[in-house]
């Protein structure tokens, strides 16, 4: 009996090993939400981020010349824009004073650099070189001069994970700036889509899409992209709106973290209202 069993084990050992290891992998997969496991992953990711930042800085040595040239040009253009904006700012303050509005657009901004864009296990995620020590927290929006990049999802002492718009599990409430119609932007089939919008909703090709007032994660009116295409479903009742992002996710290197956690602010506000 034992001999027969042994012979069978011997002849099928490859398959037995395979099935055993695949089963272990699947069991481990089901424990992914375990807090202990999350801690181990966060620790490991912190270490990898350090290695990534070293390689990133080596790579920067080679790309720095072009970068400086571009930045010099950008600097000159921005200087001209700043002059204009300064004038607008003064005018704006005067007008706001006239109608008694409070300026709500002054968010604290932390400039950061992306140290890794390719985390094979998490497509659409970036690692930035700022973490808890710099005051970066979960749910803080990340932007650049063109618009919204994503939201911080995980932090260690010196680094943070950013879930970009191009992450398959990213969902952001957005608004058509012209018509004011809201929708949920997600990333599917390699494109940014506002899915299942009734055809009667007013979205036009070329419209600017910005973050919505109803978003509990990101502040309103941050530019996201332009309406590129409308795909009407077979029934003709619903439309998928394809959005072309303002941010060039391939090239982006420097960005900024908006140091606000909108939901926290809203919660505090709601709590204060309840206390009154």
């Amino acid at each position: 009996m034992f001999k027969i069993l042994r012979r069978y084990l011997e002849s099928f050992k490859e398959y037995i090993v395979l099935i055993l290891l695949l089963l272990i992998s699947l069991i481990v997969l089901s424990f992914n939400q375990n807090n202990q496991l999350k801690k181990i992953r966060a620790f490991a990711f912190g270490n990898v981020a350090v290695i990534n930042s070293v390689f990133s800085s080596i790579n920067q040595l080679f790309t720095l010349k072009n970068e400086i040239k571009k930045l010099e040009q950008l600097n000159a253009e921005l200087m001209l824009k700043v002059n204009k904006l300064r004038e607008y700012g003064i005018e704006n303050q005067e007008l706001k004073r006239l109608i008694g509005l409070k300026d709500t657009t002054d968010y604290p901004i932390l400039p950061v650099t992306i140290v890794s864009k390719m985390i094979p296990s998490l497509p659409g995620y970036f690692i930035i070189n700022a973490g808890l020590k710099e005051g970066v927290e979960k749910s803080m929006p990340v932007i650049n001069d063109r618009g919204l990049i994503g939201v911080v999802t995980e932090t260690t002492d010196n680094f943070a994970f950013v879930k970009t718009l191009l992450s398959p599990d990213s969902k952001i409430a957005v608004r058509d700036e012209r018509s004011g119609v809201n929708g949920i932007l997600s990333f599917e089939n390699n494109m940014l889509l506002i899915k299942n919008v009734p055809t009667t909703y007013d979205f036009r090709i070329g419209d600017r899409i910005v973050t919505s007032l109803v978003s509990t994660i990101v502040p309103p009116s941050i530019p996201v992209g332009l309406v590129a295409q409308k795909q009407i479903s077979i029934t003709g009742l619903l439309t998928d709106i394809e959005v072309y992002p303002f941010v060039d996710f391939e090239k982006v290197r420097n960005c900024a973290v908006l140091k606000i956690v909108k939901s926290k602010e809203l919660n505090n506000l709601e709590l204060n209202l309840l206390r009154q």
Binding site: F31, L37, R41, A42, F45, V48, P120, S121, L122
Partner: peptide
């Protein structure tokens, strides 16, 4: 472990 992704 080292990419901080989904273990397994």
């Amino acid at each position: 472990i080292f990419t901080g992704g989904m273990l397994g």
